[in-house]
Deep mutational scan, measured.
Amino acid sequence: KSAVKALFDYKAQREDELTFTKSAIIQNVEKQDGGWWRGDYGGKKQLWFPSNYVEEMI
């Protein structure tokens, strides 16, 4: 599983989504079709976030 870095702040709209700030590192990313991926951040595990808010880390 990979890690991504947030390009923008994102505030969860639902309880199954992540809230994060710009430059946050989201771990254990599971990529899905449809523009939403799952990952771990801030003590939350495998919640959804919009993939267009992040960049992949190499």
Rank of each mutant, 00 (worst) to 15 (best):
W37T: 01
T19S: 15
W48A: 06
N28E: 05
E15R: 09
A24I: 07
Y10E: 02
I25E: 06
E30R: 12
L7V: 09
K44I: 06
K22E: 09
S2V: 15
W48T: 03
N52R: 11
D33F: 09
E15M: 09
G42S: 07
D40H: 01
A3L: 12
Y41E: 03
D33E: 14
W48I: 05
F49Y: 02
Q27P: 03
Y41F: 10
K5M: 12
Q46C: 09
K5G: 04
N52E: 13
Q32H: 15
Q27C: 15
F49G: 01
G35P: 11
Q46V: 02
D9W: 05
K44C: 12
A6I: 03
E30Q: 14
F8I: 09
G42H: 07
R14F: 09
S51Q: 09
K31Q: 09
I26W: 00
W37F: 05
V54W: 01
W48G: 03
S2I: 15
V54Q: 01
N28R: 05
G35N: 08
A3K: 12
Q32A: 14
K22S: 10
I58S: 13
V54P: 00
F20P: 03
A24R: 00
L7W: 05
Q32F: 15
K11T: 15
E30D: 15
G34Q: 07
Q32R: 14
Q13K: 12
Y53M: 13
L7A: 06
G34E: 07
A12N: 05
Y53I: 12
W36L: 04
I25G: 01
S51L: 06
A24Y: 00
S23Q: 11
L7K: 11
Y41I: 06
N28A: 06
V4R: 00
D33P: 14
F49W: 01
G43Q: 08
K5Q: 11
E30W: 14
Y41D: 02
Q46N: 11
D40K: 00
S23A: 12
K22Y: 08
D9E: 09
G39T: 00
Q46M: 07
Q13V: 10
V4S: 04
K22A: 14
E30L: 15
G34S: 08
A3N: 13
Y10T: 04
G34R: 05
Q13A: 11
Y41M: 06
E15A: 11
E30G: 09
E17R: 03
Q27M: 13
M57E: 10
Q13H: 09
N52V: 10
A6F: 01
K1I: 13
K1W: 12
N28I: 03
S23R: 07
V4H: 08
K22G: 07
L47R: 07
V54M: 02
S2W: 12
F20C: 06
G39W: 04
L7E: 04
I58T: 15
K5V: 14
I25K: 03
V4K: 03
T21E: 15
E30K: 13
Y53W: 07
D40A: 00
K45E: 12
I26M: 00
K1T: 14
P50T: 02
Q13E: 10
D40G: 01
G42Q: 11
R38L: 09
K44N: 10
G34H: 08
S23C: 15
E15D: 14
D40V: 00
A6P: 04
T19C: 08
G39N: 01
I58P: 14
E55M: 11
V54A: 06
S51G: 06
Q46P: 03
A12P: 05
P50Y: 04
A3S: 15
E55N: 06
T19M: 03
I25C: 08
I25T: 06
D33N: 11
L18I: 04
I58Q: 13
K11Y: 13
E15Q: 11
L7H: 05
A6D: 04
K31R: 12
E56T: 08
E15Y: 10
L7I: 13
Y53N: 05
D16V: 08
I25A: 04
Q27V: 15
Y53V: 11
D40N: 04
P50V: 01
F8E: 09
E15G: 09
Q32T: 14
D9N: 09
K31E: 04
V4C: 15
D33T: 11
W37K: 02
E15I: 12
K45D: 07
P50A: 04
G39M: 02
K31H: 05
F49D: 02
D16I: 10
F49S: 00
K11V: 15
A24M: 04
E56C: 13
G34L: 06
Q27A: 10
K11I: 15
Y41C: 07
A6N: 02
A6Y: 03
Y10G: 01
A6R: 00
I26V: 06
T19D: 10
S2N: 13
A12G: 10
Y53A: 11
I26Q: 03
Q46L: 06
F20G: 02
A24P: 03
K45W: 10
L7G: 04
S2M: 13
L47M: 12
W36H: 04
D16K: 05
D33M: 10
V4G: 05
A12K: 04
K1Q: 12
V54I: 05
Q27L: 15
W48S: 05
Y53S: 07
K1A: 13
G39C: 04
G42Y: 06
A3V: 15
N52Q: 11
N28G: 05
K44D: 10
A12Y: 00
F8R: 15
W48V: 04
K45A: 10
A12W: 03
M57S: 09
G42K: 08
V29G: 01
K31C: 07
T19H: 05
K1D: 11
L18W: 00
I25S: 03
Y41T: 04
W48C: 06
I26N: 03
Y53R: 08
R14L: 07
A3H: 12
G43F: 05
T21D: 12
G35W: 06
L47S: 12
Y10V: 02
P50C: 08
Y41P: 00
V54R: 01
Y41W: 08
Q32M: 15
S2C: 15
K44Y: 12
Y10D: 01
F8T: 09
K1V: 13
G35C: 12
N28S: 05
F20M: 04
Y10S: 02
Q13R: 11
W48Q: 05
A24D: 10
F8Y: 14
I25R: 01
I25W: 07
L18E: 02
G42L: 09
E17A: 01
K45H: 13
G39Q: 00
G34V: 06
E56I: 10
Y53F: 12
F8D: 08
F8A: 12
S2P: 14
W36N: 03
P50L: 06
D33H: 11
K11C: 15
Q13D: 08
S23T: 10
D40W: 02
Q13G: 08
Q27Y: 15
A6V: 05
D9M: 03
G43N: 11
N52A: 14
E17F: 05
V29K: 00
E55A: 10
E55F: 08
E17Y: 03
S51H: 07
L47H: 14
V54C: 05
M57N: 07
P50R: 01
F8C: 15
G39I: 01
L18R: 00
E56F: 07
D33I: 10
F20E: 03
Y10H: 04
N28P: 00
A6K: 01
K11M: 13
L18S: 01
K11P: 06
A12V: 01
F49P: 03
Y53P: 02
W48N: 05
G34M: 06
T21G: 11
E17G: 04
I26D: 01
P50G: 02
K45C: 13
L18N: 06
Y41G: 01
I25P: 00
Y53E: 02
E30F: 14
V4P: 00
D16P: 02
E56D: 13
W36Q: 04
K31N: 03
V54E: 01
Q13N: 10
V29F: 01
F49T: 01
W36C: 07
G43I: 06
K45M: 13
I26F: 02
W37Y: 04
G34I: 06
E30M: 14
A24E: 07
S51R: 09
D9P: 10
K44M: 14
W36R: 09
Y53L: 15
I25F: 06
E56N: 08
I26S: 00
L47K: 12
V54T: 08
E15W: 13
